[in-house]
Nucleic acid binder design. Structure first.
Length: 287
DNA sequence: GGTTCTCTGCCGC
DNA sequence: GCGGCAGAGAACC
């Protein structure tokens, strides 16, 4: 571990233990650098800015307090929110539901899902009210459903209705021809760093690949190659967040959550379908 | 709605 | 490697 990493680690600890969100100047004084330099180094090492890191920590703390059964007011003040209005403005984003409901054990959000068939095998599509929250591929539909339940233990999983089947058909069509884009809202849940990585993945055009090193560079955290790989592996939205377009620096394929064969198939398909496709290709399940 | 803070690109040493 | 500025945008009051 070099000196930068050590200093940033101590800044992280400071952020975690502080009762409020530390200012940049405060962190800079601790590090013994200028605020500019502190900011840059922090971002370089962690992949996120100090503010984002502190924000994530604060959100985590609110969730902890609420789960412990504290009153909502106690929870957000202790977590470092300065006022109720600011907390409530951010609450839905942070918790996915009203704070009181979260504290009461979150009776669980409604998640619609359905399993369809694609050329890559079984495909499970699930959506919350916010948007598509899972797209997974596999051989065994039941296993896919079980994984979904494990991931959303408190949610009400409901089989989709006919309208939802339509949405599944859209996703299947998209998986068959990713270069056309998926015009659906996504419900993307992850840490600040993961979100950053996933956004970078979504900026990789179909038909091209990049290395993990390059993704790390693009998000401004060139040293975080391993963390980038971890974020890719944590992706739950197959094809919509195209982690299959990330390969080793030498171009060979690394792992893929949904099977290396599927990764290869996806890449091959994208290479062969030109970008300026006129959209005339039709796929099963589409009007 | 104004002020302060954050963030990033760019440059200089 | 480090500091600094400018300017846009977000957060805050």
């Amino acid at each position: 571990m070099n000196e930068h990493a050590a200093v940033v680690a101590s800044l992280c600890r400071h952020i975690e233990n502080a009762e409020h969100v530390p200012t940049l100047d405060e962190l800079a004084a601790l590090a013994g650098w200028s605020s500019y330099h502190t900011h840059r180094v922090f971002r370089q090492v962690t992949g996120v800015t100090p503010r984002a890191y502190a924000g994530a920590r604060r959100a985590e703390r609110v969730r902890e307090q609420l789960r412990r059964g504290d009153t909502v007011t106690d929870a957000f003040y202790q977590a470092g929110f300065g006022s109720s209005s600011r907390f409530y403005a951010a609450a839905t984003q942070l918790l996915g539901m009203r704070p009181t409901r979260y504290r009461d054990g979150g009776p669980g959000e409604d998640i619609l899902f359905a399993v369809g068939q694609s050329s890559l095998g079984a495909i499970l599509v699930a959506a919350s009210r916010q948007g598509v929250c899972a797209i997974s591929l596999g051989d065994d539909p039941q296993l896919l459903v079980r994984e979904l339940q494990d991931r959303f233990p408190r949610a009400h999983l409901q089989g989709g209705d006919s309208a939802f089947e339509q949405l599944v058909a859209t996703v299947v069509g998209f998986v068959e021809a990713p270069e056309r884009g998926l015009g659906l809202p996504l419900d993307i849940r992850g840490t600040a760093f993961q979100q950053r990585v996933w956004q970078a993945l979504r900026d990789i055009p179909a038909g091209t690949t990049v290395s993990y090193t390059e993704v790390a560079r693009r998000i401004g955290a060139p040293a975080s190659v391993r963390a980038v790989a971890g974020a890719c592996a944590a992706n739950r939205l197959a094809v919509a967040i195209p982690c299959h377009r990330v390969v080793r620096t030498d171009g060979t394929l690394s792992g893929y959550r949904w099977g290396i064969a599927r990764k290869r198939a996806l890449l091959e398909r994208e290479r062969n379908e030109p970008q300026h496709d006129d959209g005339s290709v039709r796929h099963a399940g589409e009007p």
